[in-house]
Write a protein that binds this DNA or RNA. Sequence first.
DNA 1: CATAGGGCTTTAAACGGTTTAAAAGACCGT
DNA 2: ACGGTCTTTTAAACCGTTTAAAGCCCTATG
Lengths: 344, 344
Amino acid sequence: MEAPLAQKIKLSTIADALGVSTATVSLALRDSPLVADVTRDRIKQHAREIGYIYNRRAASLRTSRSGIVGVVVHDIMNPFYAEILRSIESELDRSGQTFILSNHYDQLEKQRTFVDTLLQLGADGVIMSPAIGTPAEDIIMAEENGLPAVLIARSVDGAEVPVFRGDDAYGTALATNHLISLGHKRIAMIGGTDQTSTGRDRYQGYLNAMQAAGLEVMPWWRIAGPRTKQGGFEAAGQFLALKDKPTAACCWNDLVAIGLMNGIARAGLVPGIDASVTGYDDLEEAQIATPALTTVWNGQREVGRRAASALLDKLNGQQVRPSQELIKPELHVRQSTGRPKERA
Amino acid sequence: MEAPLAQKIKLSTIADALGVSTATVSLALRDSPLVADVTRDRIKQHAREIGYIYNRRAASLRTSRSGIVGVVVHDIMNPFYAEILRSIESELDRSGQTFILSNHYDQLEKQRTFVDTLLQLGADGVIMSPAIGTPAEDIIMAEENGLPAVLIARSVDGAEVPVFRGDDAYGTALATNHLISLGHKRIAMIGGTDQTSTGRDRYQGYLNAMQAAGLEVMPWWRIAGPRTKQGGFEAAGQFLALKDKPTAACCWNDLVAIGLMNGIARAGLVPGIDASVTGYDDLEEAQIATPALTTVWNGQREVGRRAASALLDKLNGQQVRPSQELIKPELHVRQSTGRPKERA
DNA sequence: CATAGGGCTTTAAACGGTTTAAAAGACCGT
DNA sequence: ACGGTCTTTTAAACCGTTTAAAGCCCTATG
């Protein structure tokens, strides 16, 4: 039962049926003013009737514009990126670009493979949150091969491309200052890694705030590593057993904060009362966590929107200067933070 | 400072440099046994040295194989789909297919636009969790135009394609029976919609279990609609105010269940003690929720893996019969369920 | 009456690969 | 010198569009 497989319909199918040339059909379908109104209408109608499907590969072979944009992030399952992706999607959608997504899970190799695929497909550009350890050459190479890039969330030293991200140092300082103003003096910093610019910036913001308030910081107050809910949950035991018993935790992100709160609750303590917790990102979930999470809004949608629109500008040949756009975060105070309470 | 833009490197660049024909180069790069070993090595080495980039659009124009697979789901931000996507990704990766992702947010129009894009790109196949209201013709049309499809999570009546999903009726029956065996007699069903096969199946499973146990079911015990954490959170008030005060809630999925538990906690009650709650999906998060969530494991990874591999089989011309593969769910009992406790 | 110009259409050459029949070489034996 | 058999290589067609450039038909103009 082989499918009868009607002959593939192409421009020439229409051209032959209507007794015109393929050039006319091509022009007509793209609403060129070169073709007469009546001809255009006839062609478009016929095309619709017989179910013509535009062949983008053929077209892009000729025009070297594929209408494809690649997006690589650490992990699309992470709600932080998911929100960015959503705004990138809506921005690209409106200009008719298709986007291809990939996780690199911070593996340079995966990222390279993906960029290579984009090059092969003739993608028009790429938006990336670079994997840990991405060398500037990787990005330069992409650009040289006609794949303009825009970075989000993390920057790469030496790569002359636009970067959109939040002002992380300022953001953690906001959270830390909030805790300090409530009376906390011993504050732990949980999660994140020094291997990314974001990680370094956030830690620095915390240190700055502590120092500015004249508070001492013990190195063991930093529990580096966790970046997920699971990670935060597991860090709870360690946090509660910390020497000097910090009364508050400034967390790497909302996921870690929520996980930590779950872990604290599991230990029989009440987050927000027995220990204060701050997050970072202000995911939707922060509002419905119990207690609602005090956190730093990071402007994800803004990051995504601006990154996408900068890339589109680049595609349209506009000169986009390689600026570092820092989006100003805001503190959103909720119930997970309160006055310090000493534990036994 | 226009880029000097080195001449694009193509097959003929290599051919000219080495004094052979493009045919030889093409064959050599693809390891054809037709070309002599020494020739092949020379060609491959030279290609690597000058940084040749394979042009997939050109190739696929001739071969009509693009190496692209489309995936459409309701929402990639939903962790349920995210887990499926991850396993699809790893399965496709290993066979060198690139995948393009899209959300349809249950809007038929978005889904159609995406399928159309896939057709234009000459995608090799599509894996979809069809939007509510998808008519069989949409899928038949895609297949007729050379875009083989495989469905996940939801089925479409009349579409002769493989479907991979969990046995939803059986799964909710498991959860409901568990609650019944704990002594609950008034059980609410929260979230989901009758507009999808999944929604109908899960509700049916709940009804079956109640009936089999000889328990009466009040229509107002069903709070249809919610499908997210936010939705579950908002449904808490309604649930707690329900006539007859059900002592347990069988939720549409883990997100709704966790949201509901947060809402219950916010109302000053303790989930798992004052009211029992079951979820569905067994997301990672179910384990760290407070209290840990009793839920039904739905085999997401299995669904993704099998769907991807069925599609690959189809691409390779194997006859894949349009079976409905039901994956058997399992009940995972944790702390969110317990003996019933009457509320004031 | 030639000619110019405007409006619309066609011709033909790309774009960068793959495919396959046929040509060219290499090697052997007579 | 010649044929026969293998192994390599090549020429040319093809995939479905786009786009300069050229062509055609009419009407307006000097």
